[in-house]
Design a protein around this nucleic acid. Structure first.
Length: 583
RNA sequence: GAUUUAGUAGCUCAGCUGGUAGAGCACAUCCCUUUUAAGGAUGGGGUCCUGGGUUCGAAUCCCAGCUAGAUCACCA
């Protein structure tokens, strides 16, 4: 464990932070613990009050709730504030003489009005009423400080759905997600929906009797996909291990083992570029079901998506940005070659590598000599077809070269029984009739090896134990993987994968350790104690840096300037006096 | 990795044809007994991202770096 020494010089805190720390002290001096230990029993949530309070019923007359103060409007002897809990915000109303029925008005005049701030967490007891303006409000008779916040929050105000001063800075939103979640309620909602999506899928799978499993994240061979992995090292075994790029080969081993349906929500890791749709760690749902083929899986995929969107929105039509997308099945099914023909007018059926290169040249699609047939076709498809696939579409029957784990097509030579589901021009799911012929599988792995020798650095690793599992015998199986992050983006209308990951990967900010000389070293040079801090502030954090100073006059000038600017009230320094320090 | 835009108060941003740092909200003090992005008065608060350069003088111009966003490349 590294140990960081953090010097919290009170002068480095902003004025607002200093004031809050002072309030903390004042609370303690009044005998109030700003961080109490005891359980605080609430009996209601804010949203519940807003939804269900009625003046006729006169309900909610003895409520207790807890939350964060999000705004305050303090008047003379009465105040309004907004309290936010996990469900939402409700207005609270405090009157001095309710809070303080006796002579001592400290709890209202001092504690509430002066020592509490926006961001503090309090619990309140009281009854619900409607103000003259018609807003449902909790009339507080007693409040308890549950947590003092000493870091000022951004103030976001809202009227008629319009946000004022909303926190939009991505860096703050992602690095300090806790602040984002506090001040942007819609962000909290996105992550609730993400969990609902996962829950919806899990319910469907469990109702079919499929088994949720966990497979290794640390793998000796990063198989099941083609991507550059993260590598790590196990000390005791003294072997390299990889963070999984996929879990496919493990789930298929479980089908060999006798389960008929297995699935996993799997965090996978790929050591590649980052952009709006890629994060180094991401979540994929993979499911494998015995005795099914990819046709069955297409229908099942439609069912999964339809259930998720209905559970989330209650309808199948969604909007993503400007686009309206209807997720009601059945989805269009078209073979990859037909899709290319529709969009280019060229039939590449049976075309050899040289012919495909000519097609690429004709449409000015980038290609290079390391690319085989499969990759060339893939490039043409990406360039000419993908952008047309806004409404959900199954692209089926992929070339064998880029599908080394897929069963050959039952009737179309050179192609495999594979589909990808595209929605909003993005790949959402990928599925096969799984290759279960061990001899064929071994040959496909060896083809991959040849591709990697040809210079394709994305070719697959060979997993011999997986081949052995196929030798034992895997029933005909269909498997499907679905990108949970991208599906969530789609169903919550978010533009970036970072907006559906609570803690997206960010470049860490390296804080340089600043070497500082001890106070005694400065004193030893004849420097008065009161000038040490200003010197450090001006960058002379070590006495050796002082030795490099050439002009004593300039340093004296800088110090006097600092003194004046910060109103330290120190007696000015002469260049001669400073010159003596430097000798 | 390439191109490009941005980084100024706690937050949102203005200032950028170089000449002493600004606004709104927030904060502090005061007035106000049901207010609504409350109002009024006064006040405090800044390493203008970092480091160089040009200049009498740089938030502003130039170069480099850091961080972030966008586009592209990479990533089936």
């Amino acid at each position: 464990m590294h140990k960081f020494l953090i010097c919290m010089n009170i002068q480095e805190l902003s004025e607002q932070e200093q004031i809050r720390r002072k309030s903390l002290e004042d609370l303690r001096n009044l005998g109030i613990n700003p961080y109490p230990a005891a359980e605080y029993k609430t009996n209601v949530f804010a949203q519940d009050i807003l939804d269900n309070f009625s003046q006729e019923k006169n309900n909610f007359q003895d409520v207790c709730l807890a939350g964060r103060i999000m705004s305050r409007r303090i008047m003379g002897n009465a105040s309004f504030a907004e309290l936010m809990d996990s469900s939402g915000r409700v207005q609270i109303y405090l009157r001095r003489d309710d809070i303080c029925p006796g002579e001592d008005k400290t709890m209202y005049n001092t504690v509430f009005k002066h020592l509490l701030d926006i961001g503090d967490i309090i619990g309140v007891k009281g009854h619900v009423f409607k103000t003259q303006m018609g807003e449902t409000t909790v009339h507080v008779r007693e409040f308890t400080i549950l947590c003092k916040s000493i870091h000022p929050l951004p103030i976001v105000k809202e009227k008629d759905g319009k946000m004022y001063d909303a926190v939009t800075d991505h860096e703050m939103r992602y690095r300090q997600r806790y602040i984002d979640l506090i001040v942007n309620p819609r962000v909290r909602d996105v992550f609730r929906k993400r969990t609902q999506i996962v829950q919806s899928m899990r319910e469907l799978f469990n109702s079919r009797g499929y088994l949720e499993v966990e497979t290794p994240i640390l793998q000796p061979i990063p198989g099941g996909a083609t991507a550059r992995p993260f590598i790590t090292h196990h000390n005791t075994l003294d072997i390299p291990l990889y963070l999984r790029i996929a879990n496919e080969l493990y789930l298929k081993r479980l089908i060999v083992g006798g389960y008929e349906g297995v699935y996993e929500f799997s965090k996978d890791f790929r050591n590649e570029g980052m952009d709006r749709t890629h994060n180094p760690e991401f979540t994929v749902m993979e499911i494998y079901i015995a005795y099914k083929d990819y046709n069955w899986m297409m229908t099942f995929t439609e069912e999964i998506i339809k259930k998720a969107v209905l559970d989330l929105h209650g309808k199948t039509e969604i909007t993503y940005g400007e686009k309206v997308i209807n997720l009601n099945p059945p989805y269009k099914r078209i073979s990859m070659l037909d899709s290319i023909r529709e969009n280019t007018g060229v039939d590449i059926m049976g075309m050899d590598e040289a012919g495909l290169r000519k097609v690429c040249e004709r449409f000015e699609i980038e290609h290079d000599p390391t690319m085989g047939k499969g990759k060339l076709i893939d490039s043409i498809f990406k360039e000419k077809c993908e952008f047309t696939l806004v409404q959900p579409t199954f692209i089926i029957d992929y070339p064998a070269e880029t599908s080394p784990l897929t069963k050959m097509h039952r009737t179309k030579p050179g192609l495999t029984e594979r589909f990808e589901l595209f929605i909003n021009c993005k790949e959402i799911a990928n599925a096969y009739s799984e290759l279960n012929d061990p001899i064929d599988q071994m040959e496909r792995f060896q083809d991959q090896l040849r591709l990697s020798e040809k210079g394709d650095d994305e070719a697959m690793f060979i997993d011999l134990d997986f081949v052995k599992a196929l030798e034992v015998g895997m029933p005909p199986t269909s498997g499907m993987g679905m990108g949970i992050d991208r599906l969530t983006m789609l169903l919550t209308d978010q533009p970036s994968i970072q907006d559906v990951l609570l803690f997206p990967q960010m470049k860490s900010i390296i804080q340089k350790a600043v070497l500082e000389s001890q106070k005694e070293e400065y004193l030893g040079l004849g420097i008065p104690e009161e000038w040490i801090d200003p010197l450090k502030k001006l960058g002379y954090t070590t006495v050796s840096k002082l030795k490099e100073v050439e002009k004593a006059g300039k340093l004296a000038n800088d110090l006097n300037g600092y003194n004046k600017k910060n109103k330290l009230g120190l007696t000015g320094l002469s260049p001669e006096a400073v010159g003596k320090w430097l000798k």
